Amino acid sequence: MGKVNVLLKRSYVCTISVIAITAVLTLGITVFSHGVLLDEEDVHIFKGIYSLYGISVIPLLFAIIGGFGVWKEKKWALIVFAVGMILGCLFFIVLEISLPFAYQQMELMVKNKYLSLLPLSNLSESELSELDYTQSEFHCCGLTSLEDWENDIPESCQCDMDSSDECVDTYGSMRNDSGLNFSNVKPIRIYAKPCLPVLIQLGMSHVSIFIGITLAKTLLWLLSVGLCVAVLCQLNKKVDTPNVVYSREAKAGSYDILNDAQEPSLKTE
């Protein structure tokens, strides 16, 4: 069995340590998200959470096996790590190829999710608070138009006096931050831009971030596979042993002096 280069071994250990730390962080975030979303009834959310459990636990196990293999110089453990990581890389490559094709379908799903909230007057307190924040932050009103509020327009839709955004004048009741409605005698200026395109863009930006993270993780896993294969090659390398050469002097050893001393005495006798 060959000897593994120290620099190569340290590079491999650092790489699988990063994989293990990333897996632990992902597992912690997944457990926290599972606890927060425990009361949700959306099946798709829990499918994503269960997928995150697999994405975090499986590489953590392989990283432990790979660390054991390089520590004890066990070839079977390194082979298991390499095969598992190669399969994981293939899975992520297929996922990255398929995601751009499913981009439009995912965009349609996000759109239908928000349109299912109409009319906005039936939203819960948490949903109203989230939409109010979106309207005030991105200077928009309603999902498709201000009519989505059915004459119960929140104060977050109101344009500032010095706002450079496109605004429209409207009459009707308006809801302030305390939830009370009041009627307006004079027209009020409301943001003309709907919030649905903004919400769709935000939702799809999360998909783009996921694609970037997946690509970075794939490259890291490919690096670990390359280092693991290099370690295996050095372990499989045969150590050169010196050839044994016959030598008369080596066979005679240190006893030649005694033999030379005894030969004259034998001749005199």
Score class of each variant (00 low, 15 high):
residue 4 V to K: 01
residue 4 V to R: 10
residue 8 L to A: 01
residue 10 R to V: 02
residue 10 R to S: 06
residue 13 V to I: 12
residue 14 C to D: 13
residue 16 I to V: 04
residue 20 A to R: 05
residue 22 T to A: 10
residue 22 T to F: 14
residue 29 I to K: 06
residue 35 G to M: 09
residue 42 D to H: 06
residue 43 V to L: 09
residue 44 H to M: 15
residue 46 F to T: 06
residue 48 G to K: 00
residue 51 S to F: 14
residue 53 Y to E: 03
residue 56 S to I: 01
residue 56 S to K: 01
residue 57 V to Y: 11
residue 63 A to L: 00
residue 66 G to K: 01
residue 66 G to N: 03
residue 69 G to A: 00
residue 70 V to S: 04
residue 71 W to C: 01
residue 72 K to Q: 11
residue 82 A to K: 00
residue 98 S to A: 10
residue 101 F to N: 12
residue 104 Q to E: 15
residue 105 Q to L: 09
residue 106 M to H: 12
residue 107 E to R: 13
residue 107 E to N: 13
residue 108 L to F: 09
residue 113 K to V: 13
residue 116 S to C: 01
residue 121 S to Y: 10
residue 122 N to P: 06
residue 123 L to P: 12
residue 127 E to P: 14
residue 129 S to R: 11
residue 130 E to C: 05
residue 135 Q to E: 11
residue 137 E to C: 02
residue 141 C to A: 04
residue 142 G to A: 04
residue 143 L to V: 05
residue 148 D to R: 10
residue 152 D to C: 04
residue 154 P to H: 03
residue 157 C to W: 01
residue 160 D to Q: 13
residue 166 E to P: 03
residue 170 T to W: 11
residue 174 M to A: 10
residue 175 R to D: 08
residue 176 N to L: 06
residue 183 S to T: 05
residue 188 I to W: 10
residue 189 R to I: 02
residue 193 K to F: 06
residue 195 C to Y: 02
residue 198 V to T: 07
residue 203 G to T: 01
residue 204 M to G: 03
residue 205 S to F: 04
residue 207 V to D: 04
residue 209 I to L: 02
residue 222 L to R: 00
residue 226 G to P: 03
residue 227 L to N: 00
residue 236 N to R: 11
residue 237 K to S: 14
residue 240 D to N: 11
residue 240 D to M: 09
residue 243 N to C: 12
residue 245 V to A: 04
residue 245 V to R: 09
residue 246 Y to I: 02
residue 247 S to K: 11
residue 248 R to F: 15
residue 248 R to Y: 10
residue 249 E to S: 15
residue 250 A to S: 12
residue 252 A to L: 15
residue 257 I to W: 07
residue 260 D to F: 10
residue 260 D to V: 03
residue 261 A to D: 12
residue 262 Q to F: 15
residue 264 P to D: 02
residue 268 T to N: 14
